[in-house]
Simulated assay, not measured.
Amino acid sequence: MLKYENLLVEEKENILHVTINRPKALNALNQQTMSELEQLFGKDYADRKDIIGVLLTGSGDRAFVAGADIKEFIGVASEGSGKEMATRGQDVFFLIENFHRPVLALVNGFALGGGCELAMACHMRIAHETARFGQPEVNLGIIPGYGGTQRLNQLIGKGKAMELTLTGNMINAVEAHTLGLVNYCLPAGEAMAKALELLQTIGTKGPVAIEESIRAINAYYASSDFVAEAEAFGRASSTEDFMEGASAFVEKRKADFKGK
């Protein structure tokens, strides 16, 4: 079993508590964190039938996951490598989406870009009232690449998915709940209790039925075109606009896009 550096993992009463632990980076998803998520869901706990579910959250009280690690993204300079990065991220999130036990995202702050995509890959989402959601990739001259263009459509419909993706605007937890992006919006002290209550209730049901229900519900969305998203991410990542947008983000200045 891999020794996790960026994940805190603890089992309590047959519930696996997983905390993304990079608080100084607002829990941004770097490649090490992605590798650890892949290891956890794809290998270490892939065959664990004794757990009843997973509770996934971020450390601290500011962010669930504030996005992907932009400094790493700057190294993506070609269409091929951009597509490869997106495909790898999608594959990791498929492991979560298709995990044999329910995975609940406890969104305790910013869930932006890759963080919103990670939350959407979970089977359910419970948000603190202070949480914020968004797909702000267009601010960097790029698009969501870890499944955001597909799952946001599934959860809130085409019109609002278009609006949030094309404007890059954030929404608060109340609006996210109204749109159906999250299952519950609760005060911080109540959100954890609700997540545990849901998992404990599911734990009283037939394990095979739970596993087959997850598989059957996911099958409805099997025609989503994640390949098209990865290809589009690859094209966007090879542009001058992306390099300008990512550099502007790191340098904390306004991007000057040229449409190239």
Rank of each mutant, 00 (worst) to 15 (best):
Q154W: 14
F93G: 02
L199T: 03
M34Q: 05
M162S: 15
A176C: 03
T167A: 06
N6Q: 06
K71P: 14
Y221D: 03
L106P: 04
N27G: 00
E244G: 04
G114R: 01
A161S: 07
G115C: 02
H123A: 05
N172V: 05
K258S: 10
V250K: 06
D44N: 01
L118F: 14
K252S: 10
A255P: 15
L95H: 10
D225A: 04
P136G: 01
I142C: 12
M192E: 14
Q39L: 10
C116W: 05
F93I: 03
T149G: 10
L155T: 02
A176I: 02
R132G: 11
E251M: 10
L112N: 08
F242T: 07
V182M: 01
G180C: 04
F110D: 09
E231A: 09
T167S: 15
N21G: 00
D241A: 06
L29E: 05
L8P: 11
M1G: 13
G180A: 00
T204S: 02
F41C: 01
V18W: 00
N183H: 06
F133T: 08
A248E: 00
I20R: 02
G60R: 03
M170R: 08
L181K: 03
A193K: 08
T149S: 15
D44L: 02
I52P: 03
I217C: 14
A77C: 09
Q31R: 09
K43A: 15
A119C: 03
M170Y: 05
M162Y: 14
I70M: 10
T204I: 02
D241N: 06
S223P: 08
K158G: 10
L198Y: 12
D225V: 13
E244A: 09
L104Q: 14
H128D: 09
G147Y: 01
E163V: 07
N14M: 02
A195S: 08
L198M: 07
A246F: 07
L55P: 04
G75N: 12
H177S: 09
L95V: 04
E231D: 12
F64S: 06
D61G: 09
K205T: 11
A188F: 10
A209I: 14
E137V: 02
R22G: 04
E163T: 08
N6C: 07
L152W: 03
T178L: 12
G113T: 10
G206T: 15
S59N: 13
V227T: 10
T201N: 13
Q90W: 08
N30V: 03
G80K: 07
V76E: 04
